[in-house]
Write a protein that binds this DNA or RNA. Sequence first.
DNA 1: GCTTGTGAAACGTTTCACAGCA
DNA 2: TGCTGTGAAACGTTTCACAAGC
Lengths: 237, 237
Amino acid sequence: MGVDETPDSGPQSPQPPSPAVRADSVPEPAVRRLSLYLRELEGLLRRGRDTVSSKQLGEVLNLTDAQVRKDLAYFGQFGHPGIGYRVDELISRLRCILGTDRTWNVLLVGAGHLGSALLSYRGFSKKGFQVVAVFDSDPAKIGSRIGIGGSLEILPIEQLPAVVVEREIQIGVLAVPAEVAQATADQLVAAGIKGILNFAPASLIVPERVALATVDLAVHLEQLAFRISAEQVATPK
Amino acid sequence: MGVDETPDSGPQSPQPPSPAVRADSVPEPAVRRLSLYLRELEGLLRRGRDTVSSKQLGEVLNLTDAQVRKDLAYFGQFGHPGIGYRVDELISRLRCILGTDRTWNVLLVGAGHLGSALLSYRGFSKKGFQVVAVFDSDPAKIGSRIGIGGSLEILPIEQLPAVVVEREIQIGVLAVPAEVAQATADQLVAAGIKGILNFAPASLIVPERVALATVDLAVHLEQLAFRISAEQVATPK
DNA sequence: GCTTGTGAAACGTTTCACAGCA
DNA sequence: TGCTGTGAAACGTTTCACAAGC
């Protein structure tokens, strides 16, 4: 499948990554919820809360208190009996675990509607994800500037391997048509990307060492349609 | 929480919904995978395939053949021993089950970058989801036209209840800032919306009868960051 | 009082393995 | 032979219940 990998340790990895706890044998659903805990905690911090109990955290997220405690306990002992969890403390622990206590350099492939929207989305940089390169295959777009304040030049896909190394890019966001999604993913993998966030409505196959997440917007609408239909048939309660 | 619900049966529901099989006691993960099966099958159909086995379907989706068979069997007996599944037959069965064999009228709240991108996304209408109204709270935007060919006028949120009834809207897409997401969701619920697709990075609380799906783009990047970090710590295989 | 962390039980999902059919 | 549909076993996750700590 083309070139395979950057030698061993990347160009120079910024610093040893942070986890500090072995992150294996942790249920996948628990890891997904970690992000939700962090999001809620950041909201609590903004509202000036100092501590929060597993019960309170669970309530807003529709989870039991035991679930919250167990999820957090997979990674260490962060709580204080009788008190709960200290908001600021738990936030920095979770950021460390999730890897968002550092900056991640991200590239975007596909400067269409969705790609442009993602570029102007503040939520990414707030969490430490910095889009540092944009690629497109359309010759008409190449060379033009895009992003907040036109800070990025749209590059041809051929420059991908060099730019990934140069700008120390770890994650690629795919906002291309489904038909070219697999081929583009292959190029990202060949360039040494470590994770891919795929917005194309297609299943991708990547080597095990590459992390992959696919977000299919239409699929989520389909799930809503299913649940609405089911409701009308079954429980008109 | 404001007005509660449109009387009983909506204005006039287009037609009795399609499911035909009791859609209860089906594992949630199985329902999620139904959408993926459908997506793959549509790809197979385009490539001219007539039949497919559970093994072949499972391979592209990283699932076992038994998993595929069991998922489909929850809804009926669609397969043909010795042959597999007929692609066109299974597609129409799945569309019927998921509720995408009919058209869904959708509204969008929030005409910012993401909202605009969603409006110009072809994947929605391809699956039968038609955006028929757009709302925003910014007075500067109200009255201007948006969407493919400027076919939609941006309306003030005050018109929401009337428009939902008038245009028989079942699903609302939320592309608003996190701070106003819950308040906006409350308005959608009050207007009688049956399902909400939330793109704001916030947990929403809605009545049980309203279907809710939240897509937090930053959360998916966080999950990638976690898995990449974990990889470097654990298995440098 | 209230809260965490955790073994054990309960529950749900996935995989196995095979009968039955084309 | 090749494939589906399906009980039963294996596995994983969630909930329960309680000891220990503030």
